Amino acid sequence: MAIEILTKEDLNQFHKSLLEDIKEILKGKNEQSKKWLKSTEVRKLLNISPGTLQNLRINGTLTYTKVGGIIYYSDLDIEKLFEINKVQATPNLFKQQ
C-alpha cells in the first residue's frame, strides 16, 4: 500500500473545493432553487433522520411553517443555519513539528 503525504496546500485545495460544492448545493446552481422545501427534501439535503429534523424544529434551531399538516422550511433559513454553525478553520492544526 502506497503512502501519500498531504501538504497544507492539498488541505487548502480540498477546503476550497468542499466549500464550493456546498455553495453550489445551497444555491441550486444546477437547478432552480425552491423557496420552500418539504421535510423529505430538507432531510435529504442535510442527510439527517426524521427524528433529528424534529429535534431541530422543537429546540428552535430551524424555523418552519405548517400548512394543512405539511411542514415547509425556508431555503434561506437552512442557509442561515449553515452560516450560524460555521466553524472557522484552524491554520495551525496541521502544523509540522
Results as ranks from 00 to 15, higher is better:
residue 1 M to P: 09
residue 2 A to H: 07
residue 2 A to G: 02
residue 10 D to V: 02
residue 10 D to F: 10
residue 11 L to T: 01
residue 11 L to W: 00
residue 17 S to Q: 12
residue 17 S to T: 12
residue 19 L to Y: 05
residue 21 D to N: 12
residue 22 I to Y: 07
residue 23 K to C: 10
residue 24 E to W: 04
residue 24 E to S: 15
residue 26 L to G: 08
residue 26 L to S: 08
residue 26 L to V: 06
residue 26 L to I: 11
residue 27 K to N: 09
residue 29 K to S: 13
residue 35 K to G: 01
residue 36 W to R: 04
residue 37 L to Y: 12
residue 39 S to T: 08
residue 39 S to L: 05
residue 39 S to Y: 02
residue 40 T to Y: 04
residue 41 E to L: 04
residue 42 V to S: 05
residue 43 R to I: 06
residue 45 L to R: 06
residue 46 L to E: 10
residue 48 I to E: 13
residue 48 I to Q: 12
residue 53 L to G: 10
residue 54 Q to K: 12
residue 54 Q to A: 03
residue 55 N to C: 01
residue 56 L to P: 04
residue 57 R to T: 08
residue 58 I to Y: 02
residue 58 I to D: 02
residue 60 G to L: 01
residue 60 G to S: 02
residue 62 L to T: 07
residue 62 L to V: 13
residue 63 T to I: 07
residue 63 T to S: 14
residue 63 T to L: 09
residue 64 Y to M: 11
residue 65 T to C: 06
residue 68 G to A: 11
residue 69 G to H: 04
residue 69 G to Q: 03
residue 70 I to A: 12
residue 70 I to N: 13
residue 73 Y to K: 04
residue 76 L to S: 08
residue 77 D to L: 11
residue 78 I to P: 00
residue 79 E to C: 10
residue 80 K to G: 04
residue 81 L to W: 09
residue 86 K to M: 05
residue 86 K to W: 10
residue 87 V to E: 15
residue 87 V to Y: 15
residue 87 V to T: 15
residue 87 V to K: 15
residue 89 A to E: 15
residue 89 A to D: 15
residue 89 A to I: 15
residue 90 T to G: 00
residue 92 N to D: 13
residue 93 L to K: 10
residue 94 F to A: 05
residue 94 F to H: 05
residue 95 K to I: 03
residue 95 K to N: 06
residue 95 K to L: 11
residue 97 Q to F: 09
